[in-house]
């Protein structure tokens, strides 16, 4: 196939940006779009000069749609992914893959059965300082990772209205926002085994938590701590990684990354000095390469599912006030 003809389900900000990037990468065109909101639909159709479809089923079954981007709110990922799998179209689904592990299992099973690719947009791993931190570990400068702490705090009006304010569609803060951080922690530390969490809803802007501490244990014996907040006008992003021969700290989306072996000097790199492909372009290139050339995708439904499982453990832990084993939520 020369060009990948894309169908877009849920034409909001994210999906439109992704589609724009696909076109810019020079290997895709947008064939059709669908969205329950007439305004979003009309805007996307005119921007991409694409046909409109009345439903996900109709869109996925069009002969001119080769592959599908799902950009609906998280609570609506399941139905849309199932529609694409039924039509045997390879899928790019935005994170979180679903709002429960059971949903993820259903999507993965449907895609496996149909033999189609399920790619999940766990793009945080590809942001400069995040990707860089993994390479520093791979190169052995600071030994094996043993403890990771991530702070992500902010305050967004966008979360106080529309689908983002509702657990039913957003899943919760840990799902809508922090599957990114949970996936990154797993990317660095390996598989998680147990989770303990304390949560609160301080500002009541959403019908779910706007503050959480999540403690994690990993298979390698290491530990992790995520502090997330959507009630902090003074925002902060901070990663602190402790490993067997040194440590590494970075500022997430901006600032710098520093690492130092116990017996060596500190090395600092500014995010502004790192050149490379935009993270979204990189995930989309990987998706397209996987579709057209059978290349190994950067992340799959399995990664999406594991991040959702970590969040689900945290919710169960907060509800039941006890540590929850990851195996408890993975068992179906």
């Amino acid at each position: 196939m020369d060009y990948v003809n894309i169908g877009v389900i849920g034409c909001g900000n994210m999906a439109r940006d992704l589609a724009r990037r696909c076109v810019k990468l020079g290997r895709c065109r947008v064939a059709a779009v669908t969205d329950p909101d007439p305004e979003s639909l009309a805007a996307a159709a005119s921007e991409f000069m694409a046909d409109t479809a009345a439903s996900a089923e109709e869109l996925c079954n069009r002969p001119d749609v080769d592959a599908v981007i799902v950009g609906s709110p998280p609570g609506a990922h399941l139905d849309n992914v199932l529609a694409a799998a039924a039509a045997r179209r390879p899928i790019f689904c935005e994170k979180p893959l679903g709002v429960t592990v059971a949903e993820c299992d259903q999507m993965i099973a449907a895609c496996d059965e149909a033999g189609v690719l399920l790619f999940v947009g766990q793009v945080l791993r590809l942001f400069p300082l995040f990707a860089y931190s993994r390479s520093v570990i791979n190169e052995g400068h600071i030994g094996e990772p043993r403890a990771i702490s991530v702070i992500r705090a902010g305050y967004g009006q966008a979360f106080h209205s529309g689908w983002r304010a509702k657990r039913k569609l957003a899943g919760g803060l840990l799902l809508e926002v922090n599957v990114h951080e949970l996936d990154y922690m797993r990317f660095i530390m390996g598989e998680p085994v147990r989770v303990y969490a304390l949560m609160d809803n301080i500002m009541r802007g959403m019908d779910y938590e706007d503050q959480a501490y999540v403690l994690l244990e990993f298979e390698n014996g290491g530990t992790g701590c995520l502090h997330t907040s959507m009630s902090s006008p003074i925002g902060e992003y901070r990663v602190h990684l402790q490993s067997t021969k040194g440590n590494l700290v970075h500022g997430g989306f901006s600032g710098s990354l520093r690492y130092q072996p116990v017996d060596g000097q500190v090395t600092e790199v500014l995010q502004a000095d790192i050149s490379g492909l935009n993270p979204y372009d990189r995930e989309l290139s990987s998706w397209i390469e996987a579709i057209t050339n059978d290349a190994k995708p950067l992340f799959t439904g399995h990664d999406g599912r594991m991040a959702v499982a970590m969040a689900e453990c945290a919710y169960r832990s907060a509800d039941e006030k006890r540590p929850v084993a990851v195996s408890e939520v993975l068992a179906t």
Partner: peptide, 15 residues
């Protein structure tokens, strides 16, 4: 030095 550091950074970022 700036060029060399940028090269190292670009490669680390790209993995």
């Amino acid at each position: 030095v700036a060029d060399a550091e940028a090269m190292i950074a670009a490669c680390r970022y790209a993995g």
